[in-house]
Design a protein around this nucleic acid. Sequence first.
DNA 1: CAATAACGCTACCACACAGTAAACAAAATT
DNA 2: AATTTTGTTTACTGTGTGGTAGCGTTATTG
Lengths: 208, 208
Amino acid sequence: MSILGKLSFKDQAFKLREDAILDATARILASKGFDLMTMDDVALEVGISKPSLYKHFKSKEDLVTEAMIRLLTGAQAFWEQLPDTGGPVGKLRALLEWAMRVRLAGGLPFLPSTSPQVREMLTRSLRYVTKVVKLNSTLKSAVQDAKKQGLLRRDLPDDVILFTYYARTCDPAVEYLRLYAKLDDDAIVAHMLAVFFEGVQPGGATAS
Amino acid sequence: MSILGKLSFKDQAFKLREDAILDATARILASKGFDLMTMDDVALEVGISKPSLYKHFKSKEDLVTEAMIRLLTGAQAFWEQLPDTGGPVGKLRALLEWAMRVRLAGGLPFLPSTSPQVREMLTRSLRYVTKVVKLNSTLKSAVQDAKKQGLLRRDLPDDVILFTYYARTCDPAVEYLRLYAKLDDDAIVAHMLAVFFEGVQPGGATAS
DNA sequence: CAATAACGCTACCACACAGTAAACAAAATT
DNA sequence: AATTTTGTTTACTGTGTGGTAGCGTTATTG
């Protein structure tokens, strides 16, 4: 037991540090973007040195991919823990709000809107793609369900709704609103949701 | 006259090449993004060598800033040439459609959604900022006008409408729709406009 | 045909960053 | 206490890129 205990303790510490690294990665990635983030930045932020960092992740690509995977996992978990009381649109609203609040708190955007190279890199990761596909089919069901109930426009293809939905999670309007319009986070989230679901023209749907 | 003629001819050729350089810059920038675009790329695409490129633009930052300024100038020109018959919302729709078609044709997105560093670089350029401010005030007037006429929701602040509008010009949903949903350009534009103006929920405003 | 001016280009520098090898410290075991 | 083992760091390499110095090359003029 002592050896087992020690090993598991070590593993625990290892896992803890891995989480700290991923946290730091997310922060730096959100603030500087992929290209400007250096491995030295990450190591410095965590308080370890670069070779130790490479003990955990074999490359920069690997590190960033892992950070994105963790984010997707969190999103999936958040979705599954949501109550069904709000209906499909209520759940979609809640997840989008969650994603925007993650970003406003200095976290990563869901989509790598940044550059084609990052997107390509991620699509080379089977684990990442699997997660994306799974989350996508979950949300697609919700969208189809909502359309059946008349809660979403039937004249829009599923993909249009889904992709514009995803894009809202990395919408630069969020940053601009905070920087230049000086709105607080609650107002930003409320307005972004309103524009997405109801549009900018009047006569629109009622807020859920 | 012969000397003068020669000089003006040279200037003309110089200007022409400058345009070719800016075209190439826009193409590469749109496809690879700022960080991955190298000066060698641009020189190769234009068919000149790097030092010749530096005869025209004193740095990479300068080159990219100039490309963005040219884009804004084009947008302003397009706006001013629009007829007033469609009303303010019609003009806003038309400009947004124009911007999306520019991008779909391989051009630049309006906003540097890419990275904070690019945004910061651009805001250091007085000429760029001036153009942005001018275009922004033009569009703000249109928005206020439309709100007065009841054509845009009065419960949304001007800035919210403007920033979400700008963000649509660099919305990654456009690329995803083309890549994965296999929609043609017309359909993409129509759906993006529909979602922005009318939202994804039913019971919305009529298309202008 | 010779001299000169203008122009563009090859070859280079400095630097930053991803990734690694080998020295070093600390703990665990005997 | 001696030895092995584990984990960490300092110091380095190689590569790619922004930016430049100085050399060919062509056109122009007398």
